[in-house]
Nucleic acid binder design. Structure first.
Lengths: 207, 207, 207, 207
DNA sequence: TATGAATGAGACTTCATTCAT
DNA sequence: CATGAATGAAGTCTCATTCAT
């Protein structure tokens, strides 16, 4: 059992290191642009050597990709949770925005992912605009539900409204990121709530 | 007059080079992040040597600052023009968005300025979030006019609406930038038009 | 112990490299002015890459500072040794000059330090004239001993004599440095011996 | 006559510029090492363009050489003057030191020359130690006169004494240069006077 | 004569990445 | 797993020098 214990310990230790590394990457990438972020800083923040970093990740791009993947997972999680709890589609969309805002405001790793998503052509060959397209689809899908369940205007232009919501949320992210590192994002979203509801429920020529 | 002629010629030549340099900087900064942009590329694009670049601008930061300054000037120009032409405040704000969208979609230098504004703490110690604050003020001022001239809802929450408009526009900028280098921005703005009008004119609990 | 061994080995290797680097810096800085010295030459002379140099020293200034620090240590060592051995204060001061002359004539690092000390305001913000002031104090202190132990004239103007000695020694350094890279310094000091003794022992209006 | 006048004016203007340029070079080279001095600074200090500088001097080395040449001329002038006035050889040598000290303390161009002389292998292929050898010869020649006219010890070791004097003076130059840009040189020389006289007049085993 | 503009070589420095231990 | 050491490519910037006007 000695050997197995040692192995287990090592593996546990390795996982812990990896988590620390990811958190450190989040901290650094949330503070500055990808090109300005130094692997040295990440390693230091994680309390390990630069050499070690290359054991856990292949290179700088991989680190960023890992961050992006965690971000997407966590944001997706919010979507799942909200969809389970929400009543009407309108509540769902509003709850989604609120939930994401809270997540972003408190989770450095998610902040880092957002930052990274907004700097294309940086080397990480991922099509970073992809996630945004996805979110439009998500929103459109919910809006269609809203038209169906009567919580939104029956003649809502779903496509345009979904894009508008996306723009609002992305804009709020960017502005709160610049303003105070996303601390004000929940407030911004709350403040936009009334306007959003108006757009989604006003009939005739809405959105 | 020989001497003066010579001087004038030289100065003109210099200014021309500077313009080329600025355009080149616009092209490069609009394509990639500040930290990824290479002075070599800018110089090459302008058709001059790297050394020359330092004759006209002190360093990389100065180049970026010059780009930002031109961007702000051109965007301010749109504001002025629109304010002169517009009838109601509602027309004014919608015209402003349209005008800016067209400018951004076609002017590389302005695109570069936008990119630069969104990468804080990169070295150009300018508080790059400042312009966004300014635009909220501009919007708020126009909205107050709209409440007064009756083109908007009398009980409009001006502050919240101004922030929402700003978020919409910034979000549209970011998304169109990621999607197709701002080509789709005018379309996005046009598509948001109905929603914006709804928000600004719906009474009771608007925005 | 495997791990500790590995660490120790690495550290030893690093120290060795640093020593080589310092020696190379001595060789280069002793041959030319600070501003003319190329880090490339130092790295090459030490047999490592330029990049490596920055692993051990932060920048060019740091390298120079390290050289200066070693120089001062080695020269101070001579002072200590001589003070322990010397009989009279007169023997002490003459022995000090001889010892320093021999050190300077043979130690490239010390030569480099001397060169560096004589190029003020070059970037190494150390007040490089400080060491010279120090040496005047040292000399004055010994001379006071000489007045006390009777090996020098009782009415010696200690301050003036100390300054004169300093000037002689600095002058000899500079001239031998220009003449033949300090090879002739011991000869110069030996040749000055008689004059120095005269100045220090002649009564009435000496020094 | 118009043409000649114009020519004369131009020539005069040119000479004036050249003088300004030389003074500027003196100012700059007296402040920093040759390698640190920028032609741009010299041109600015002279109030002309860098391009103009190349009309008057071929290149950076030439500027330095011009400074050195003026320095040597002015220092030689002091020698001539002193030799005409002095009574005994002892007075002559002491007067020479005093005269040179005063010149150096007040003349930036001479200060610049001194600085330049002490940075060998800088590019100006002049053997900069040559002047110092010369001055030893001058001193030796005067000392021989002193032995002859009885103002110095009859058994003076002329060679050694001359070298010692040279070292004292060079040392004083260097130290005052480092201390306060040569302002204290006259004081240093005055303070060394008594010691020098002792060395030159003490019999038996002097110098 | 004089100058504004331009150039190119080369210096210092940074940083992702690799490797022996 | 981890690290200290090392590397090399590349980037920003400086500066002596040239040239057309």
């Amino acid at each position: 059992m000695d050997v197995n214990d040692a192995k287990a310990t090592k593996r546990a230790h390795g996982l812990e290191t990896q988590r620390a590394l990811l958190a450190a990457a989040g901290a650094v990438f949330s503070r500055m642009a990808y090109a300005d972020a130094r692997l040295k800083d990440i390693a230091e923040e994680a309390g390990i050597s630069q050499g070690s970093l290359y054991f856990h990740f292949g290179n700088k791009d991989d680190v960023a990709r890992a961050v992006l993947s965690v971000q997407q997972e966590r944001m997706g999680q919010v979507l799942t949770t909200v969809q389970e709890l929400a009543g009407s589609a309108l509540d769902c969309i509003l709850g989604l925005f609120e939930g994401l805002a809270d997540l972003i405001a408190t989770d450095e790793l998610v902040q880092a992912g957002i930052r990274l998503s907004m700097q294309p052509a940086t080397g990480l060959e991922v099509d970073s605009s992809a996630p945004y397209v996805e979110w439009v689809e998500v929103a459109a899908s919910i809006l269609r539900g809203g038209v169906a369940d009567g919580s939104m205007a029956p003649d809502l232009d779903v496509r345009a409204a979904a894009e508008l919501l996306n723009e609002i949320f992305v804009g709020a992210q960017v502005l709160s990121g610049l303003e105070d590192k996303w601390a004000s994002l929940p407030r911004r979203v709350a403040s936009a709530r009334a306007g959003i509801r108006t757009v989604l429920t006003s009939s005739t020529r809405a959105a």
